[in-house]
Simulated assay, not measured.
Amino acid sequence: MVSSRWRVAAGIACLLVGSIGQLAQYLVTPVLGGDAGAADQVREVAAHLPEMRLVLWLDLAVLLVVPAVLYVSAVAGRSRLAAAGTVLAFLTSLGAIVLVATDALYYEAALQADQAGSIALVSAYQANGLVSGLLAAYLLGHAVGFILLGIALARTRAVPVWAGVALCASPVAEIAGYASGTSALAAAGYALLVVAFGACAVSLARKGLPTAGSPAPAEGPVASAPLTAS
Rank of each mutant, 00 (worst) to 15 (best):
V31N: 10
L70K: 05
L99T: 00
R43D: 15
Y107G: 03
T182R: 13
R157D: 02
L227W: 14
A173F: 08
N128Q: 06
V172A: 12
A137Q: 08
V202T: 01
I147W: 02
A109M: 05
A223G: 05
P30S: 10
G117S: 04
T86C: 12
L94P: 06
P160Y: 11
V100G: 11
Y178I: 07
L227N: 09
V195F: 00
E108S: 13
V72S: 00
A201F: 13
A110E: 01
G18C: 06
I119L: 14
L121A: 12
G177Q: 04
S203C: 10
V8Q: 00
A201R: 03
S180E: 03
W57A: 08
V66S: 09
P221E: 15
G11D: 03
R5E: 12
L204T: 14
A127F: 07
A24P: 04
F197R: 05
I20D: 02
V31C: 13
R157T: 03
L227S: 11
G177S: 01
T102K: 12
V87G: 09
G150D: 00
L91A: 14
A176K: 01
E108I: 08
A173K: 00
H48K: 11
A10V: 01
L94R: 09
Y71W: 13
S123D: 15
V75P: 06
R7M: 14
G141S: 07
A225D: 10
K207I: 04
A199D: 04
Y106N: 06
G117T: 07
L63M: 08
A116G: 01
V75W: 03
S214N: 02
L91E: 13
A143E: 13
A68I: 15
V65C: 12
L88Y: 04
S183C: 07
A187V: 11
A201K: 04
S230C: 13
Q112E: 15
G145D: 06
G129R: 15
D59A: 07
S93V: 08
A229Q: 05
L32T: 05
